[in-house]
């Protein structure tokens, strides 16, 4: 218990030294925006996996501590084996979802556009080349959009199924970054935030959504045995996340 407390205290002191992410909340009343132009390509094409607190990670840490250089090598092998296992599991989950015709980006985009329209916005689309999904786009000045427009960039850092180690189960997760900016002056940010479905940590200023507990699988074999349920669980996660993004603009 004491060790846990010390570890937590150390983590807290470390966290205290780091300037945390600062969101920019949207104020619809003062923003004067009627049209949301959504950047296409919001999510990676395929669902992914996220494994935390695995035996391999713990082994790597313990080995590195207990046996110096030899431990680092053995630990690295343990972590590598773990990564290979996860890559295999990811492929199997993607194959299971593919049997259901699952298209994560299409599900997310449809839900987002529907929710934005329900909130009273006119909608448009724009195509911008995206180098990665972990940070917002660097947009160029655009003067071809009508006044009252803003560009919405949703960068899906990840979605799929996650396992957080111990006696937990595979459950859906989604993580997206959201930025709404002025097309004529992209440095003018109307909104910047992040939404996480099923977070394993709850950073202090980020919107988070609890998962639906019914979508849980003990083993990859269970996902393969019921791919329709796996699809349904991830679809629900994506729709709820899209709705939460639209809520930020309400």
């Amino acid at each position: 218990m004491l060790r846990l407390t010390v570890a937590s205290a150390a983590a807290l002191s470390l966290a205290a030294c780091v300037t945390p992410y600062a969101p920019i909340p949207y104020d619809r009343a003062s923003a004067g925006i009627q049209t949301i132009v959504v950047v296409e390509d919001s999510l990676p094409a395929d669902a992914g996996t996220q494994k935390l607190a695995t035996n391999g990670q713990n082994m790597a840490s313990a080995m590195a501590a207990s046996a110096g250089l030899a431990g680092v090598l053995v630990g690295a092998i343990a972590a590598g084996v773990d990564a290979n296992i996860e890559a295999g599991q990811r492929t199997r989950i993607q194959a299971a979802l593919a049997t259901q015709g699952f298209d994560g980006e299409a599900i997310f985009d449809a839900a987002l556009e529907s929710a934005l329209a329900a909130n009273g916005y006119e909608l448009g689309k724009v195509t911008v080349e995206r180098k990665n999904y972990h940070e917002p786009l660097e947009l160029e000045v655009r003067n071809d959009l009508q006044p009252g427009s803003a560009i919405l960039d949703v960068a899906g850092a990840g979605y799929g199924y996650q396992l957080v180690g111990g006696n937990t189960q595979w459950r859906p997760f989604v993580t997206v970054g959201v930025r709404l900016s002025d097309p004529a002056d992209p440095s003018k940010i109307h909104l910047d935030n992040r939404v996480v479905y099923n977070p394993v940590a709850t950073p202090d200023v980020i919107v988070n959504l609890p998962p639906d507990p019914q979508y849980a699988f003990t083993k990859i074999e269970d996902i393969e045995a019921d791919p329709a349920k796996a699809k349904e669980g991830l679809e629900k996660a994506l729709v709820e996340t899209a709705n939460a993004v639209a809520d930020l603009l309400n």
């Binding site: 060790r3 207990s66 998962p211």
Partner: peptide, 18 residues
């Protein structure tokens, strides 16, 4: 009501010849 998944961190100490 909310379902939550968390990662819990602990620490250990391993004795070595050095």
């Amino acid at each position: 009501d909310a379902f939550e998944q968390k990662v819990v961190t602990g620490s250990g100490y391993a004795s070595t010849p050095t």
